[in-house]
Nucleic acid binder design. Structure first.
Lengths: 271, 271
DNA sequence: CGTAGAGTTGAGTGTATTCAACTCGGGTGG
DNA sequence: CCACCCGAGTTGAATACACTCAACTCTACG
């Protein structure tokens, strides 16, 4: 569903400052996996939006804030996380270009986590209520938003398994593969490397590990010829098959392949 | 929002075999937190449904099944879980009466986890597509389903923090409190005990711990006078304040208090 | 009375943590 | 220009939390 070409188009658009004839942020995010009609594109692009620039380390919003906006990350990396009183921190997920933030905002009185930029970042923001209205007016778009929510849930469940039942070696392998698949959506010719703009401490906070243990485990993965870490934090997967085996990674949960409700047959069922 | 009285009403209805003038399963689940109109109740009750009885240990569906039904648990406990090849198992969540299962079914080609009955269980099942149709016809009901999804997401995020960054002692304390709050929805006169129909091994699988370590940690909680474990697996919280402090438990994430989109003001915003 | 499942406990092991020191490179200010 | 500092990465050593293996108890059940 997600074609390599479209993803590249998305990434190109991010870096351009002028959108010109390009699609708006939401149309691009949804358009990656769904062929939108002209009317749907117009409706998405007609929403009021604001552009936001954040420097690395800046917070977009804090745990407990009452936020009535939904965001689309256009450029850069962010993370969603929560910190305990004594400083222990858990990252729920990394946020990649195209991802939505505060997706469920209309349904939650306050946020329950903090969102922070890992690199300089650019976002577009929308009113949560506008998105709900739009979802009602355009059922296919509503289904697309719901699908994005279901997909996020699925990714979070996999994160639970990763943290709860895999050891450090498997956890890191699994995370690196997930990021690869999400960045370079799975097709047969996908690339095997990407920039991971994240310190080892942050990786540890995502995986429930200490910085030191992340360091040793990454070194082990390198020593065994499974990955390579260039300068500039570029990760290259050298032995995809072995890594997939170690991590017991099966990409089904990423749901990059199909959106059941958007088939002709199912759209008819729900009227 | 969730009144104690209504919860008790829900539990009463579960055990009755005949519904008589009682509400149907979905109307009861949603009615716990939203005052439904007659029309909405009729619409919910008009959906085709099937009743399902499962014995303890039986699976409702397996990871990878293509399921186009959404379920409401009426009676008993279940869990959603995934198992790695070597047998390590992670429970994503316990499922309590009133909870929905395969909530996102319309948006997912196959399930990514297995659902198993922990006790004898009774469920009602509905067509996923019927629920999507209904959500379109009745926006407040659509919002209610979306809210339930957002709430599940919130609970899962807390589970990530619990597993990723709390130690065994804090993890168990936190889980016991979450279950208490979910069962006995928070009000000032809530009870302090409940039946936990779960072996220590299952608790370990939920918390990413070994059976032996769960055992020792529970014993420590007992020895310190924080909890009591009667026969019949009844848990009594003896020192709620201390336990809340240890677990750093703050019930906001449970979202038992408010449904933003369902206020008058917000319903107007979305038309 | 024997068995099976759950709980309990001890002992030894191991994975991951903490504390600490050191390297390296980039940036800043004297 | 160089000294200094800081953040990130690396490594060693000691510790601790949690796991595995194993044995034993207790209760329910047939």
């Amino acid at each position: 569903m997600l074609s390599r070409q479209k993803v590249l188009k998305f990434q190109k658009a991010e870096t351009d400052q002028k959108d010109e004839s390009e699609l708006g942020p939401l149309a691009r995010t949804i358009g990656v996996f769904l062929d939108l009609t002209e009317e749907e594109i117009s409706a998405l692009d007609a929403l009021n939006r604001q552009k936001i620039h954040l420097a690395a380390q800046q917070d977009l919003y804090l745990e407990g804030d009452a936020i009535d906006r939904t965001y689309v990350l256009l450029h850069g990396w962010m993370c969603r996380h929560r910190t305990l009183e004594d400083g222990r921190r858990q990252i729920m997920s990394f946020v990649l270009p195209g991802d939505l933030l505060n997706h469920f905002g209309a349904y939650q009185p306050t946020t329950i986590h903090t969102v922070t930029a890992l690199t300089d970042a650019v976002l577009a923001s929308f009113s949560c209520h506008d998105i709900v209205s739009l979802s009602r007016a355009y059922p296919r778009l509503g289904a697309a938003f719901a699908w994005l929510g279901a997909r996020k849930y699925s990714l979070l469940e996999e994160h639970v398994v990763r943290i709860g039942r895999r050891n450090a070696y498997e956890r890191i392998a699994h995370m690196l593969l997930e990021l690869l698949h999400c960045l370079n959506v799975v097709d047969d010719s996908c690339e095997d490397g990407y920039e991971l703009p994240v310190t080892q401490e942050i990786l540890g906070d995502a995986l429930g590990l200490s910085l030191v243990h992340v360091n040793r485990t990454l070194r082990r993965l390198r020593k065994e010829g499974l990955i390579q870490m260039d300068s500039n934090r570029r990760i290259v997967i050298l032995d995809m098959d072995a890594l997939t085996e170690i991590a017991e990674f099966s990409p089904d949960y990423l749901q990059h392949r199909s959106i059941p409700i958007l088939t002709e047959e199912n759209l008819q069922k729900v009227g």
